[in-house]
Structure formats: C-alpha cells, structure tokens
C-alpha cells in the first residue's frame, strides 16, 4: 500500500507533461473575443467616404458579413488586402470595413492603391468602436450574423487557409441559423 504512494510523484509528473505537450505550438497570445455570442456594441460613427453619413449597428444587420478592422499604418493589412479583394469580388462575400485610428487621407491612399473590397467603411479615427469590440491589434476580422451578433473573431491576416478552415464554417453556420 505504501509502495503505491511512491508512484504518486510519477503520476503527477506525467500529467504535467501531458499539459505541457498540448501547449506546444499553440500561440498563447491568441485571444478569443469576449463578445462572441453578444451583439456588436452600439456606435455612431461617420462613413469613411461621406462625413455626413452616420453609421450604426444597422449597417451590420440584414445578412451575414465580415467586419474587417484595418489601417494604412498596419503592415499586415497590406498583405491581406489582396485576398479580401478576392473574397469580395469573386466569392461575393459582404465585407464591412472598420478603418481604425487612421486619417481619411491615409485611408483613401491605401484604397486607391490596393482596391476597395468593402461595401461600407466605418471611420473610427479615435478607435472607440475598436476599443468596445476589444480590438487589440490590426488586422482583425469578425464574422457578424444577420442579427448583428458577433460569431467569431480572427486576429491576424486573412488568407486562404484562414478563410477555408476558420471563417467559412462559421459563416455557413450563421447562415444556416437565420
């Protein structure tokens, strides 16, 4: 009986080892959004191309869409933009842009150079909507369903792998429900 106690440290060590093994390769800084399952927070911001037009959460309702947080100063946003163009033009995905902590001039120069995949662009120079969404670093892409509820958030560049493995399944799920 006493001998069995002697095996306890071994058992504990193996358990710890298993947990450490599962941790390998995971990115500990990748955070899931705190808003999953919750509606997009209320906001009242100008549209990028029309200062007189005010946008609110209604712009994200009606159909399943992607909300892409981007900025001219963000290097990875330049990388992913081509794929976003592909998604919007070839796959017909509705993408709403959130221009985060930028100036209008910079934003326009970016779009003029790389193209505009966005149906609408929310202009958020102070980053207030970004803050309320829990954005901590551009680029980030949210999947919003037809009711304006956040379904998923991806931090980082959107490319084919991310689209096929992460975003598309969620979009299909969201479409299936509504």
């Amino acid at each position: 009986m006493k001998r069995l106690f002697m095996f306890l440290p071994l058992v504990v060590a193996v358990a710890i080892g298993i947990f450490l093994f599962t941790g390998l390769g995971k990115d500990p800084t990748e955070l899931e959004s705190a808003l999953i399952g919750k509606p997009v927070p209320e906001f009242s911001l100008q549209a990028l191309d029309d200062p007189d037009q005010t946008l609110g959460t209604s712009v994200l309702k009606g159909q399943v869409s992607l909300l892409n947080v981007w900025a001219e100063w963000c290097p990875s946003c330049w990388d992913e933009h081509e794929y976003l163009m592909h998604l919007a033009n070839d796959k017909g995905v509705r993408i709403v842009g959130l221009n985060y902590k930028d100036t209008r001039e910079k934003a326009f120069s970016f779009l003029n150079r790389l193209g505009n995949p966005y149906e609408t662009i929310i202009f958020d120079p102070q980053g207030s909507l970004g803050f309320d969404l829990g954005v901590y670093g551009a680029p980030e892409t949210y999947v919003i369903d037809a009711e304006g509820v956040v379904r998923f958030r991806h931090v980082g560049v959107v490319n084919q792998r991310v689209w096929e493995e992460e975003l598309l399944p969620i979009i299909n799920q969201a479409k299936g429900n509504s």
């Binding site: 955070l31 899931e32 959004s33 705190a34 808003l35 803050f131 309320d132 969404l133 829990g134 901590y136």
Partner: peptide, 8 residues
Amino acid sequence: LVLRFGEF
C-alpha cells in the same frame, strides 16, 4: 475592460 477584452 473584461467585457471587451476577456478575462485575460
């Protein structure tokens, strides 16, 4: 802050 960014 937790509401926006999570318990993290």
